[in-house]
Design a protein around this nucleic acid. Sequence first.
DNA 1: GTATTATTCAAACACTCGTTTGAAACCAAT
DNA 2: ATTGGTTTCAAACGAGTGTTTGAATAATAC
Lengths: 233, 233
Amino acid sequence: MATVTEISDTRARILDAAERLFMAHGLEATTLRMITTEAQANIAAVNYHFGSKEALIEELFRRRLTWLNEQRLAELDRLEAAAGAEPVKPRLIVEAFFGVAIRMATDAEGGGRNFMRLLSRTYTEPAEFVKNFLAEEYAEVLARFKAAFFKALPDVPQEEFLWRFHFMLGAMSYAVSGADAVNVVGEGKLEFVHAGDTDALYARLMSFLIGGLRAPLPEAPAKQAKKPQRKAA
Amino acid sequence: MATVTEISDTRARILDAAERLFMAHGLEATTLRMITTEAQANIAAVNYHFGSKEALIEELFRRRLTWLNEQRLAELDRLEAAAGAEPVKPRLIVEAFFGVAIRMATDAEGGGRNFMRLLSRTYTEPAEFVKNFLAEEYAEVLARFKAAFFKALPDVPQEEFLWRFHFMLGAMSYAVSGADAVNVVGEGKLEFVHAGDTDALYARLMSFLIGGLRAPLPEAPAKQAKKPQRKAA
DNA sequence: GTATTATTCAAACACTCGTTTGAAACCAAT
DNA sequence: ATTGGTTTCAAACGAGTGTTTGAATAATAC
């Protein structure tokens, strides 16, 4: 039911309705009239409470995204404190970054699932203001996690790791979208509607991500295959 | 320069312009007036040559997608013929499916790059007619590849594999999008503008995909691991 | 050459979009 | 009861959407 803020009834109702509708139809295709109808509010309420559709979108992302990234940073803080001077194990960093997201993505009641699906598809959203907003919102957490990964994987070329991180984001994006995206692969089988399936999806994605992250480095096609292949230890 | 069909000048110009613009701004945000302006055609030309904006989109996807999937099937035919009764090696199947796509994605001149980026982002497009169209267009090739994979990986539960295939699609999607998507990870480093980088991206993605595909199966999600807290013992 | 078809074009169509307006309604504090 | 500030509401705004029209032009066939 209740989600995050409650200072204004209609304001909160608009945010929740917008989250659902943006998820179902995309940012462009969702109109303010659809949102205010579902929220049982007047069309003018959006501009009154948020200023514009863009501002509504930013506010919508901010309320969840800041919390998400705070959790990630707190998790990383804990890991680094426990590790002392040693680098944190890669698997643990992966779990810190993606685990929080998966947990949020499988929280259907609180609306986290809707949001994570929306967020996943928004990564590839071409609208300029969305890209800028997300880049800014992610700057800190990505810098921290990249540094932790570099320290944990000293023998992996940084450019190589960045690509793998990029690939991992893609895999997570699809994991979260579940049967939402073009579900041609599973023919309807890829659903994790039950809350209890959180652990299953989590375990599946982690195995895959770790496997990809620790895969042997590709032999450079043109030159330098200098680094010896690295096996998961 | 020339791309696929040339029966009508303006028809082809519209398709090419649409591909570029859809890639840059998305399906919804790209207007027919933008397209016809860039194609130096009249606004009515779209409805004359294609019937509607939706039909234009479908035609645009079809002309590339059928070719792409034909290549994939031909590749798989070749592999299965060479293997005889034996199952094809998983790595080869992965290369057949994703290799064709990566090669197409790194073909900047022919427009394949634009298309693959567009296609990648379209997987998560919520518009109903797009989803239906893509599902239909992919049905055959996916059935063939799924069967080949099942045969090649008899010891992997089919549901598990379907998820991993789903994850692989996500990774490929981001690989193709490159720095296009919210490029917060690489901060501009993730670009493969040079044609010579095809091999590098290909090798990188393949290592990652194979690593993920062949990762150890996750332990049965018995009651545990609510948090990613597993201490490194 | 004329007849016929295919293609282009400027203009208009009906509709929806996000946003604005100005008056009503609500709600506390005086 | 009156005030002043906040919130709601119906209605309209200008701009932009995909699509259609009907005449003008180009290309092809007879």
